[in-house]
Design a protein around this nucleic acid. Structure first.
Lengths: 305, 305
DNA sequence: CGCTATTTCTGTCCAGGACAAATTGGTCTG
DNA sequence: CAGACCAATTTGTCCTGGACAGAAATAGCG
């Protein structure tokens, strides 16, 4: 039997990523959410309101304004489900078939088949093509499916976990490569999505760079120390689409200031595509851009030395 | 040049894991921390106070009372550095040597050598012994080193990342194993440490169980849905030592209530060792206990069927 | 000494006010 | 009409200070 427990304000904060203050001020200003109160006067959020909050959060992270969102009620669904479905229709390539098959397997919870299908495709297509032509659109498709409610959170987790495992294994099987440049990969605190980092690492190692990955959520100060300790030529950080856009630029400026001038700062991920690049920071709009940037670095460096 | 930026209250919250409310109430009650104020009257924490807060948090998570901690000043250091150093002295086993070597390599930031040393040891000792006799004490040693300030955060990240990579690769190279029981592995929201889960997965897969990992931070409700969708016999969650002890039991009770009665709930990790087990929940004090529990499950199940 | 009742400790919640940064919209000028 | 500049609005976060429940510690008693 499935029960939907009611949630306290801190549980909702954890679950939606919206701060307590924000939740309270929305209630005060917009009249939503409107939680019940327990015997002690504390807010108790019904599951359906939390669901809606998650949706709203996602849309806000995409650039919508809260004021507009709280006005509409059914229109939201339209604004939500619509994006770029049309593009897919006219794309019956083999990669597209693989994407759809993968989605089906995730939905069917068939882990062995999922694993095998992805692994096989990777072998067949080669790593670079697999990452660029399959993993990228797949991530996007999974993200959209989650937003539409077609995927539950645990299904997205399942996919992510399998893909992480696969990419890590691929990286491990590559020659360690002690070549130039030395690239430090990580994310800032609060950003826990690592898939983009892994994809980048695959491509960069394939091109002979030395990658040192610190995983996610390294404090800025420690990124600085790590860059020095590992004599990194480049520090690469990634922001997912879910990362609050407002915080991106201040964080990058601070990090840029912390790093020595000769160390380049590369920024990738969906969050990077929506922010303007301050001086001294390379915003990479795609993974291909990262590969290009690597080539450019080498060309430039050869000229300098 | 290394600069130590001053932090806003939300930065400190991110960095220390202490809530804004807690920080403010500590200031009000204990007089620490005592941040400066910016032109707008907002708190600005010096880096040294944040450092101290991190330490205090760690000690509180270990069971110390805040009231005592705020009283002492130099005595803390003693209470901090002391634990179980003595035990190490009388343990010149080969595993112990490997642990120390690994610590040295992390400290030297020598990624290739670190990778090779761990990989070699894994091959030589075999997976099970490697996990039980090397990874477990190594994790503990790294944790302690971090607490003592011997390791920086980024060094701990580096170690964790390498170990995750290694264990994942090991799991990938094992036969996928479609045997009984089917075990769903994950952590609750807020708990982002995955190493314990990976270690458990290695041992359980080695013993022929089918493991489905959802990675970290799955909402309870989704754990429930995943358990049903994957027809799990067992749900295993892990709590690190850094997880607020107070929240463990309520979360477990709620999860236990969500899961069907025949599905067992196993709890591991340092956080599990310090909590009493409610009815219907198995607290596993060690990884060995997990292996034993697996054997017990099989014995019990054979009797039932 | 073991067990219960009371007190202290401690984290989290609440209300409602304030403010700065970002966005929007309007107006004026070239 | 494009673009620059200023005003109004929106919006997230911070603040104070009070309250309270549950855990831990202490006291009291059989």
């Amino acid at each position: 039997m499935i029960t939907r427990p009611e949630m306290s304000i801190s549980t909702v904060e954890r679950d939606t990523g919206l701060g307590k203050d924000t939740l309270r001020v929305w209630e005060r200003r917009y009249g939503f959410p409107q939680p019940a109160r327990d015997h002690n006067g504390e807010r108790v959020y019904p599951a359906e309101q939390v669901e809606r909050l998650r949706l709203i959060k996602r849309l806000i992270d995409q650039g919508h304004r809260p004021g507009k969102l709280f006005a509409a009620s059914e229109t939201e669904l339209a604004a939500l489900c619509s994006p770029c479905v049309a593009i897919k229709e006219c794309d019956p390539e083999p990669e597209e078939k693989l994407v759809r098959q993968t989605m089906r397997l995730v939905k069917a919870h068939d882990v062995p088949a999922l694993r095998q299908a992805l692994s096989q495709a990777m072998m067949r297509m080669g790593l670079q093509s697999f990452v660029l032509d399959v993993v990228v659109p797949l991530n996007q498709a999974v993200g959209e499916a989650w937003m539409n409610g077609e995927f539950a959170v645990f299904e997205e987790h399942l996919y992510t976990e399998q893909m992480k495992s696969l990419l890590r294994q691929a990286i491990g099987s590559l020659p360690p490569g002690g070549g130039q440049p030395r690239i430090l990969l990580t994310t800032v605190p609060e950003e826990q999505h690592v898939l983009g980092l892994l994809m980048a690492e695959v491509l960069l190692v394939l091109d002979g760079a030395t990658c040192i990955s610190l995983g996610t959520q390294t404090p800025l100060f420690d990124i600085q120390m790590a860059a020095l300790a590992h004599r990194a030529d480049i520090v690469a950080v990634s922001f997912s689409g879910a990362f609050p856009l407002r915080q991106v630029l201040p964080l990058l400026s601070q990090l840029r200031q912390l790093l020595p001038a000769p160390v380049e700062l590369w920024v990738g991920g969906a969050g990077a595509q929506r922010a303007a690049a301050p001086c001294g920071i390379s915003m990479l709009a795609s993974l291909q851009a990262a590969v290009d940037a690597l080539a450019a670095w080498r060309k430039n460096r050869r000229g300098c030395d």
